[in-house]
Amino acid sequence: MRVLLSIKPDHVANIMSGKKVFEFRRKVFARRDVRVAIIYCTMPVGRIVGEFDIVDIIRDSPDRLWERSQWGSGISREYFDSYFDGCKDAYALQIGNVREFEPHINPSDLVDKFTPPQSYMYIGEDRKRDMATQLELLWS
């Protein structure tokens, strides 16, 4: 199972360069069979730019999560604290192998009336068939 994540361009750049090895989330997927995250780079890019394997999902308090992940956060402590302000639990997706798509994909070419997810969108076999042509070539 895959999920599509909306990620800001500066964070995408840090993921692609290997500087960011944790993708932080306020909530994560209920499904436990998610193994790959597809990266939708938010505006002004507005493209599906790649995917990464999810090595682990870490749940902890924000302070403890920072202690465990700061070395590969790709963000400042101030940004981290602001993002998790008021949260009891914090999550980090540990990023494994990253694959950049060339060319980057306009999601509107794959899905009619595409709307980027606020947090994430499951991409199961049915959705995968809907997105079929271009993504299937990339996933094979």
Rank of each mutant, 00 (worst) to 15 (best):
G86L: 07
M121V: 01
Y40A: 04
L110I: 12
E102F: 14
Y120M: 12
F29D: 06
L4C: 10
D112M: 09
S6K: 05
N97W: 02
D130P: 00
D89F: 10
S69F: 03
L93V: 06
W66S: 03
V12A: 08
S140C: 01
V3S: 03
R99K: 14
D112T: 08
R26F: 05
I123V: 15
I58Q: 06
Q70G: 00
N14L: 12
F80M: 09
G46E: 08
W71A: 15
V21Y: 00
M131R: 02
T133R: 12
D81R: 14
A90Y: 09
Q94R: 15
A132R: 14
Y79R: 13
R32T: 12
M121N: 02
V36H: 05
R32D: 12
A37R: 00
P117F: 09
P9A: 04
L137V: 10
P9S: 05
E78Y: 08
R99F: 06
K88V: 15
P44D: 07
Q134T: 14
E136W: 04
Q94N: 03
R32V: 04
M1I: 08
I123A: 01
I75L: 11
G74C: 04
K27H: 06
N106R: 08
W71D: 14
Q134A: 14
G46R: 08
S69L: 05
Y83T: 11
A30N: 06
V55H: 08
S119D: 02
C41I: 01
F29M: 10
D33Y: 07
D85Q: 15
A13M: 00
M16Y: 11
I75Q: 11
E23F: 10
I7T: 00
L5D: 01
Y122P: 02
L5V: 13
V12P: 06
Q134G: 04
A90T: 08
I15W: 07
S82C: 07
T42S: 15
R32S: 12
V12Y: 13
D60G: 06
R32H: 09
